[in-house]
């Protein structure tokens, strides 16, 4: 069990387990972890991995995410040349380089963030999507550098920046370097702001810890997907600290909306349209077709 799965409450563990099963290529049928309806894989895919019965939003891979959001043409990746190193010679039950190799083998990604320059309905943007399957989407030096290069590209080209978070937080294997990525990523966004360019932050399941407590909430517009777990401290840590049961729906998107922490909740199937609309409004562009 990874450190992140251990951190999550049992309900999410179930969801995760179920999801892993559903992503098996030979699995034609899968069960929705939320309503337990049996779903046909093709239907689920057509529906952008949203359960057609109950609307549960399944987790997505970084590239799936970007495929859904960006126009198919004119994309190119930023920061893929930036790769992780083990500067602390970190070893717990496993060596950090081994964990990196395993994550690489499991996801075919070299770290937990994929950044692309592209367009949404022909409006140029730079978008950065987290790969949660890569060490729990944890934020280390590579993620920070790719993020910053993405923001810099947006500034240089006068384009908006979109981040799509899915992370358990900082990457402990990089010690204080990982904590500093909170400051680094957030600082880069001040340049975007100076240039008068919009920053849209999308929070997906889960957005926790150091990622939640840095760039995720400083968006000009902060959007969450329905039912996503979003917060600073993990539910288990909070339960242990306050020694009481957490209220129903605690740290879910709907709870955050009610508390005034986010601007809006958007169904994944309407996300592309909404983001296009918001970007057009913020940049005083004509309404998108």
């Amino acid at each position: 069990m990874s450190w992140l799965t251990k951190l999550l409450p049992p309900k999410i563990k179930r969801e995760q387990g179920a999801q892993r099963r559903s992503s098996l290529p030979e699995g034609l049928w899968s069960k929705c972890p939320s309503c337990e309806a049996v779903l046909y894989a093709t239907d689920l895919e057509k529906n952008l991995q949203v359960c057609p019965k109950c609307g549960h939003h399944h987790r997505l891979r970084a590239r799936q995410r970007l495929d859904m959001l960006l126009d198919p043409e004119g994309r190119f990746e930023i920061g893929a040349e930036v790769l992780p190193v083990d500067s602390l010679k970190f070893k717990d039950s496993k060596r950090y380089p081994d964990r990196l190799m395993e994550a690489n083998a499991a996801t075919d990604e070299s770290d937990s963030l994929v950044v692309m320059q592209g367009a949404i309905k022909t409006m140029p943007v730079v978008a950065a999507a987290f790969e949660f399957e890569f060490m729990g989407g944890s934020m280390g030096s590579v993620l920070g550098e790719r993020f910053v290069r993405g923001v810099q590209t947006a500034v240089d080209n006068g384009q908006p920046f979109i981040s799509i978070a899915a992370s358990g937080g900082a990457r402990m294997q990089e010690g204080l370097f990982s904590l500093m990525q909170m400051a680094k990523t957030t600082a880069a966004l001040t340049k975007l702001s100076e240039a008068g360019l919009p920053y849209i932050s999308l929070l997906t399941d889960p957005t926790m810890g150091g990622v939640s407590a840095s760039f995720a909430f400083v968006g000009d517009v902060v959007i969450a997907e329905p039912g996503a777990l979003i917060g600073f401290a993990g539910p288990r840590v909070i339960e242990q600290t306050v020694r009481e049961t957490l209220p129903a729906g605690f740290q879910r998107s709907e709870f955050l909306l009610e508390k005034g922490a986010i601007d809006l909740i958007v169904d994944r199937r309407e996300l592309r349209d909404k983001v296009a609309q918001l970007l057009a409004l913020l940049q005083k562009l004509p309404a998108a077709a």
Binding site: T186, F217, I230, F232, I238, G260
Partner: peptide
Amino acid sequence: AYPGIDAEERGQSEAIGRNLY
């Protein structure tokens, strides 16, 4: 930072992120 229900309700993440910014 305090990991409590009230802290989360009032936006612990946002408060920290805003300061960094």
